[in-house]
Structure formats: structure tokens, C-alpha cells
Amino acid sequence: MNGIKKRLEKAKGIWVAELPNVLWAYRSTSRKATNKTPYVMALKFEVVIPLEVGLPTIRIKAYDVSHNVKVLSRSLDLADEQRKNALIRMADYQKQLAKTYHQKVQHKLFSVRDLILRKVIGNTKGPVDGKLDSNWEGPYKVTKLAGKGAYYLEDPEGKPVLRPWNSNT
């Protein structure tokens, strides 16, 4: 989506004319997660770019209608298997991303009566807080354990925080 946004911002006033080209590029570029283009995932066959239609290429010259019908019918038979393979590949890709993302995370276990600071996230940040305001709030005291890495907290006045805090997020 960032690529689409950048291309359309460069086009400025003629973005309406540029949009079909940007969408074509997006739909015909293979994704890392599935190793397939969105066009292939939706329509089950490779796309032919307009330039290949205008200028005869080897791919266009080697096109055989009867062979294409056989290949399409075979690929329709294997569509479910291809979808399953794409799902497996996507799950593996997401697992690799999560592993890389969490590589530098150092888990810290807290015990009851520990004082901690809690990271301010978007929905708890005040509407008037600027970007130079503190990213941490607290201190809070751990009152009891809620599960693996989750804790019940109370503020300095002894008022309990409404929902458990998870130290893994």
C-alpha cells in the first residue's frame, strides 16, 4: 500500500490517469508470503502485460490454444492444493517475521509488590499529549499474577487498574 501511495503522490494532479497502471503493477507483482501474484491467486493463471500483447514475445508466440485449455483444466483440478500450499507458505512467512521481530525481546518476570512502569499506547494516550510527552506511565504496583506474563496492577493511591497488564506486549 505504501508503494501505491508513493506512486500516486508523485503523479499529483494526474493520479486518476496513473491509478490503473499502479493497480496493474500491484496485481502482477509476486508477494513474498505466497510467492505468487494476487492475479494468479484470484484468477488461477498468469497475467500477460499489455506490452507483450503489442510486441510479440516468445511467450506470446509459443501460445497454443489447445495446450492452454489442457493446462487450465489441470490447474483447476489442483486449485485447492495450490491454495493449501499458499496458506502453508504464508504461515511459515508469518512465523519467520514473528521470530525476527521478537528476536531482541527480553522477557522480564515480575513478582507481587514490584513497582513497574507501563508503556503508553495509542488508546491510553491523552488527546492533548504531544510527541514529546512521556512514553511511560506509572509507577504501578503488581498486586497479583493473572497468568503467564500478565499482572494485576494498582496505582500509587491503591486504586486497582481495571484490566490485567501483559508484559509481553
Rank of each mutant, 00 (worst) to 15 (best):
H107D: 02
Q96Y: 04
L72M: 03
K95A: 11
V112Y: 11
Q106H: 08
L76R: 10
I58R: 11
Y63L: 10
R118S: 06
L87Q: 08
G54E: 01
L55T: 06
I49V: 06
D92L: 04
R83H: 10
H107G: 00
Q96A: 11
R118N: 03
D80F: 04
E52N: 07
A91I: 00
G122S: 13
E52F: 00
V112I: 15
L55G: 01
K99F: 07
V65M: 13
F110P: 00
I88S: 00
T57G: 05
Q82S: 13
S66C: 08
L97T: 09
G130F: 05
S73W: 05
E46I: 04
H107Q: 11
K95C: 08
K104C: 02
K44H: 15
D129W: 13
K84C: 06
P127T: 08
L72I: 08
R74Q: 13
L76K: 12
Q106G: 01
Q106A: 04
A79P: 00
I60L: 12
K108T: 15
D129F: 12
N85D: 04
P50F: 03
V128I: 07
D80L: 02
A62G: 06
D92T: 02
L72T: 06
S111I: 14
N68R: 03
L87I: 04
M90Q: 03
G122C: 01
T100Q: 09
V53I: 08
H67S: 07
S75W: 07
K108P: 02
D64N: 15
K44A: 14
S66F: 09
K84A: 09
A86F: 05
R118I: 13
H102D: 12
L109P: 02
V47T: 03
T57Y: 02
K61N: 11
L117A: 12
F45Q: 15
D129I: 09
